[in-house]
Write a protein that binds this DNA or RNA. Structure first.
Lengths: 165, 165
DNA sequence: GTAGGATCGTTCGAAATTGAACCAGCCGGA
DNA sequence: TCCGGCTGGTTCAATTTCGAACGATCCTAC
């Protein structure tokens, strides 16, 4: 249904309810995962995500800004967290060959080990809370939705000044 | 960068990928909304959520702890944000009749007004990014998923010490 | 070459979030 | 009545995040 402008009935019942539920669920999801990670593995969710992205990459290394894009945070937050991980010895900061201003963040052996401890625990939690209980059709549907949303977000980010506010 | 995985279906292969995508999408979604709110309406997403919950409630008022449950944050964060909103004159802190230790947070006229300015803008963004592009079937499917996840989260939160594995 | 603009990563100050400690008021049972 | 435990909210220090400003490097056009 197109029909863009409804009047000041800003609380169209469905939109608001679904959206509120969505926010509630995603927040609680992240909260539980974060807690598990901190209690059992001594790292935050953000730090865990960094380790995962590194482990998934060729050479187990990435540039700072790719890391910032991948996770979705400000660059300064990545600097902060990578320093923290470096202090813990889970990550190594090296110069980037191709680009002298770049930093090549690399997973250390200790980093791999820590991740191998944490990942099964977290993945099983993710399955338990998020994936196990939904069937294939729902999963396929979810995947479609994620793709659509992702495209929408790309488009939305591309047109910042667009149209009459 | 996704690959077409049709028959491997859903199970083992890419829990990680779907989960990563989910996180990425939700973070970007919140980020864009937050930005719009701050740029155009001078409040953060958290503050906006507080105003919305209040507006949805009878008497346009709520207890602090209900607010904390509704949004998903620590109680101290609610204290902080409600103070901030109170300084802005969008919200009023009163004693609670029934319970002397309670605080009755109430939307002011200015709060209603501010919300009525912001809400259409935000809801249309939510529709644009999140809802418009999915059809009724998908929306229904999503709603089911949200319910399942919500139940899972309730169950997961209920059993803190037990660990199957 | 070289100037101009974009990109990379850090630094800094301000804001937000968290968890633990804490006080005060509620509630149940002896 | 009184006493322990529970709940509602606040405070405080510590952590994390953000955005803007910055120096350095890359890149393209001239």
């Amino acid at each position: 249904m197109g029909a863009g402008d409804f009047e000041s009935r800003w609380l169209a019942p469905d939109v608001n309810a679904v959206w509120a539920r969505f926010l509630n669920v995603t927040h609680r999801l992240e909260h539980q995962i974060d807690r598990r990670l901190q209690d059992h593995h001594g790292i935050t969710h953000t730090q865990y995500e960094i380790l995962v992205r590194l482990a998934d990459s060729d050479e187990r290394a990435m540039r700072m800004s790719d890391l910032a894009d991948s996770i979705v945070t400000a660059k300064s937050a990545v600097t902060y967290q990578v320093n923290r991980l470096s202090e813990m010895g889970l990550v190594e900061r090296n110069k980037c060959d191709r680009d002298n201003r770049g930093i090549w963040v690399k997973l250390t052996a200790a980093g791999v080990e820590r991740l191998e401890q944490a990942a099964p625990c977290i993945l099983s939690l993710v399955r338990e809370l998020f994936l196990d209980a939904i069937n294939c059709d729902q999963a396929a549907e979810l995947d479609k939705l994620l793709e659509i949303w992702s495209d929408n977000l790309d488009a939305g980010a591309a047109e910042p000044p667009a149209e009459g506010r």
